[in-house]
Design a protein around this nucleic acid. Sequence first.
DNA 1: CGGTACGTTGAGATCGGTCAAAGGTTGTGG
DNA 2: CCACAACCTTTGACCGATCTCAACGTACCG
Lengths: 243, 243
Amino acid sequence: MINQPVFDRMVRKLARRAPLDEADREALISLPFKTKVFAPSSYLVREGTPSEDCTLILNGFTYRQKLTQGGGRQILSVHIPGDFVDLEGSLLNVSDHNLQALTVCEVAAIPRKAVRTLIDTHPRIARALWVDTLIDGSIFREWILNVGRRDSKERVAHLLCEFAKRLALAGLGDEHGYTLPMTQEQLADCTGLTPVHVNRTLKALDAAGVIVRSGRSVSIPDWQRLRDVAGFSELYLHLDQAA
Amino acid sequence: MINQPVFDRMVRKLARRAPLDEADREALISLPFKTKVFAPSSYLVREGTPSEDCTLILNGFTYRQKLTQGGGRQILSVHIPGDFVDLEGSLLNVSDHNLQALTVCEVAAIPRKAVRTLIDTHPRIARALWVDTLIDGSIFREWILNVGRRDSKERVAHLLCEFAKRLALAGLGDEHGYTLPMTQEQLADCTGLTPVHVNRTLKALDAAGVIVRSGRSVSIPDWQRLRDVAGFSELYLHLDQAA
DNA sequence: CGGTACGTTGAGATCGGTCAAAGGTTGTGG
DNA sequence: CCACAACCTTTGACCGATCTCAACGTACCG
């Protein structure tokens, strides 16, 4: 029972991805783990290395990231409390990307072995985790579209929409606004733009009344308007299996 | 045994993703299916719809695709014989993207139900399929990087590298060249460029001696050179678990 | 042999990038 | 509680990679 408060959010999330029975919940709650804390921008996993542990975010935010040969950085996804990051680590031999802390970050590190045993012995949990990675995949696809075919306003607005939805789902904000712990440089790395242009784009969205900024918090006076600007459809978040 | 020749390539591929025993192979080979043929550019799955079947490509190529509100099209992935496409279809309620035939395409349509039963009763197969979707995810991540942070030459060259590797792996070409059944417009939709610019980029790569084109086949006089131009590293293909 | 789809080329426009500097904010140590 | 440093944001001027538009060339197919 000791893990319960810590893993509670994760168990509830997984239970929505696939039905779990009492034994499944027990098994999840009894997973062995060590709590670790990471400073902002420290690495949790590095490209090309195997990972010993599977990481569950308890507090704070992380992101996945890759570099081009020329040093260009692209952020691939942003993760919030309750997310398993590096579930791949349990099944793939080496990591194909870097995993970095966005904010100060408290995580539960679960031994890779324990995860593999869990999924071998609990098919419903395996199913739920698999659905989780499929939804991750869907979000990656949307990001390819975002970065490949939307102009800068749509791109930034779309990212803001996604964060709004996901944070609301995790109980960390709502559709009226939220605090985004990202610098404009990081937003640029999410969208494939430069920091300077992200700045101008945010300013333009603000000037158009689509968002209102103060510091790093964003408020959204008219959600429908932001959606329209972004061309946002939440289908890809598979909320029926995520919420 | 009737399925054997048809499913053979798929079984061999999965067995590399996770160890399978004789019973697993039997179960895979005995999956019920219907063969279907799709004409180029016909839809196998449409965004927003559930899919009744899980699709295994026997011959030909398919691609996943999404549109922006403005009608911009982004290709998200390209699939070759032996690939399961729309495995998501078995676990997610509705599709978040379109699946289209690139060439004439012969597929095995396996009922969604049969797939779900299979994965519930065969944990090793479930594991192999899961690893398959994880590798798909890794490729999506690389595409985000490609489209987000590489310039047009790197982007096109990277795509050509990926196809070379994947086709070679499937026995459909090698590192000296292959035939790419895509129009320049489709290449543009893969890379987030315009067809005109893809044309100029291919011309430039050809002029620089990095590739040699004739019609739709590409030959690669110096693989290392193409890799360098693209900044290609095959780590993300997880060949140790794919090959 | 004509049509349709695809590839190629040129000229000019534009969105977003680059470079550089100034203005804010935050946190820390004295 | 101030002062400074580090980091982040904002702004302007200019640049250039890629897009747009439009025409022409080419290959395949019925």
